Computed example of a mutant assay.
Amino acid sequence: MKNNLHFISPKILSFSWGSMEVEGYGVGKDFKLYPGGARSWDWSETGTEHSPGIQPEDIMELIEKECEVIVLSRGVYSGLGVMDSTIRLLEKNKIQYHILDTKRAVEVYNELVNENFRIGGLFHSTC
């Protein structure tokens, strides 16, 4: 764990159906969060769809940002899948992970930010 501001991940300030507010980054629908930053998570970059879900390509940026823990949000009703190959990639890189519905994912993510982990996450605010 590092306490340098460059390594602090932004908190999620609010979440409701179809909308999230991220500290220092404003409001959006889906987010990719990581130590020192955040950006919109555009599924079309990798061709992500609800099924089969989050693919290895979706988390590569988080791995490259040296996240110790990654939170994967499956949506409000867990309608977004997670590919087995994504989980294998996390395990291969010895990255702790949490796969949760969005409400719980936001809670866990913010708790880990408070504990100064190098945390990353993919957050989907609908389905």
Rank of each mutant, 00 (worst) to 15 (best):
N4R: 12
S125Q: 11
G79E: 11
K2V: 13
S44F: 03
L33Q: 01
I12D: 03
D101F: 01
E107H: 13
L5T: 11
G18S: 01
L122W: 02
K32Y: 00
K92C: 00
G79W: 01
I54G: 10
M20K: 01
L5N: 11
W17G: 01
P35M: 06
S51F: 14
H50Q: 11
F123P: 10
K29G: 02
M60H: 10
P52T: 12
S51A: 06
L5H: 09
L100F: 07
H50N: 12
Q55E: 13
W41P: 07
H50Y: 12
T46A: 12
V22R: 02
Y109G: 04
V27W: 00
G36C: 08
S51G: 02
D58G: 11
E111K: 15
K29V: 14
P52A: 05
E23R: 06
I95F: 04
E45Y: 09
T46R: 03
L89R: 12
L112K: 14
C67T: 05
A38P: 05
G75N: 08
A105D: 07
Y34E: 01
I63C: 10
K11V: 10
Q96R: 13
V22I: 15
T102F: 09
A38I: 01
I59T: 06
I8F: 01
A38K: 06
V108Q: 02
F123Y: 03
K11I: 13
H6Q: 12
K2R: 13
Q96L: 12
H6R: 14
K92G: 00
F123D: 06
A38T: 08
I70W: 07
S9Q: 04
C127P: 05
L100I: 09
L90F: 11
